[in-house]
């Protein structure tokens, strides 16, 4: 876990203190897509090689959809309530 914070913080500081040139930032942006796709591929492999996971994939997918829907509904309800209570005035200005 600490490794995650370390690399995130290291990257953050590099960005925050402008240590990269414009061009390097663009390269980082493109590489990010590459890393993401490579990571997704590796995660696919993890799913595919685990018999228990792959055997239950339809069930897991269904559960995942339920979690996604309820997380979205919960977020919308909370943001709607909070914005009604505290951000309404700003809208009327």
């Amino acid at each position: 876990m600490w490794k995650i914070f370390m690399v995130l913080t290291l990257g953050f500081l590099i960005g925050f203190f402008d240590l990269l040139k414009e061009k390097q930032i663009k390269i980082n942006c493109r590489l990010q897509t590459l890393w993401l796709l490579l990571l997704i591929f590796c995660m696919g492999v993890s799913i595919g090689r685990d018999g228990e996971v792959i055997g239950n994939l339809p069930v897991l997918g269904g559960k995942a959809l339920l979690f996604a829907i309820l997380a979205v509904v919960g977020s919308v309800v909370f943001v709607f309530m909070l914005s009604r209570l505290f951000l309404k005035k700003e809208e009327e200005e």
Binding site: K3, I4, V7, L8, T9, L10, G11, F12, L13, I14, G15, F16, F17, L20, I25, N28, C29, L31, Q32, W35, L36, L38, L39, F41, C42, M43, V45, S46, R49
Partner: peptide, 24 residues
């Protein structure tokens, strides 16, 4: 590849970290 995913994640997070830092 299963093992490699952890390394890929760290590289990706480093890259994401840079993006986040740029948003001062």
């Amino acid at each position: 590849l299963d093992q490699a995913s952890t390394v890929m994640l760290l590289i990706l997070l480093f890259s994401v970290g840079i993006d986040l830092g740029l948003n001062r």
